[in-house]
């Protein structure tokens, strides 16, 4: 079984379902990207994986363990890291304090992990004593990813990490995400910039109306004429 295995997820926020049998799997050290039109349930699918949405049907397995019934906090302890799309930093705390708070659940020495984050994101190191709320959009996203990495997660989930940042910053963020994956951390990411995201993806999911429409490697999806025509604008 894959490292993350979320199968046949159905559910919504009360009332009608948003997810209609959505299945997501991620292997160790792999980058999986969820793309799809607006309202397809991309973010909802990710929230379901993280336990922020109660499933009516389906199950979520992490490393072979059934975690369907666990709360988001408990999933953090199990090795999941989540970077929300917005409000993903502590604005009036310094960048360093943001990282420290990310590691709040850890009882061991966190200094080496902070050093690793600094190495991965030189901009974070540069701004370490500044309040996170004073940073630019791209720098904030780096702090947010850094904060999530502080628990040393085995699966990192990113909800539209490049929303609202310039194309140059986006490329840089994707480069960093590839580096994170190289350290053996699995990555599940929701993206609006479908083309660029699929370029770095080992696996891509095209979601339509809360169900899997296409699933393949990123490169194959990019090459698929049907996917290109319908979702990537030619």
């Amino acid at each position: 079984m894959s490292f993350l295995h979320a199968s046949e997820m159905r559910g919504g926020y009360g009332g009608a379902d948003i997810l209609h049998g959505c299945t997501l799997t991620v292997q160790k050290g792999e980058i999986a990207v969820i793309v799809g039109p607006n309202g397809a349930g991309k973010s909802t699918a990710m929230k379901a994986v993280f336990g922020m949405l109660k499933l009516r049907e389906g199950a979520v397995y992490l490393d072979g363990e059934d975690i369907t019934g666990l709360s988001p906090q408990e999933r953090v302890y199990k090795g999941m890291g989540f970077v929300p799309q917005t409000h993903n930093i502590f604005p009036t705390m310094t960048v360093r304090e943001n990282l420290e708070m990310g590691a709040f659940i850890r009882k061991d020495e966190i200094e080496p992990t902070i050093e690793q984050v600094y190495e991965l994101f030189p901009a974070v190191y540069e701004k370490r004593n500044q309040n996170a709320g004073e940073l630019s959009g791209g720098q904030r996203q780096q702090v947010a990813v850094g904060r999530a990495l502080m628990t040393q997660p085995k699966l990192l989930m990113l909800d539209e990490p490049t929303a609202g940042v310039s194309p140059i910053v986006m490329d840089e963020l994707f480069d960093r995400i590839i580096e994170v994956a190289k350290t053996g951390i699995s990555i599940l990411m929701v993206e609006q910039n479908a083309r660029q995201a699929l370029e770095i993806a080992d696996k891509g999911y095209v979601l339509v109306q809360g169900a899997n429409a296409y699933t393949d490697t990123g490169a194959n999806l990019l090459a698929d004429p049907e996917v290109r025509r319908t979702f990537l604008g030619g």
Binding site: Q73, P84, H87, T92, M93, F104, I105, R147
Partner: peptide, 11 residues
Amino acid sequence: DNEDLALLSGI
């Protein structure tokens, strides 16, 4: 600062 994120961080 951010109640939701604090909860996610295990506070």
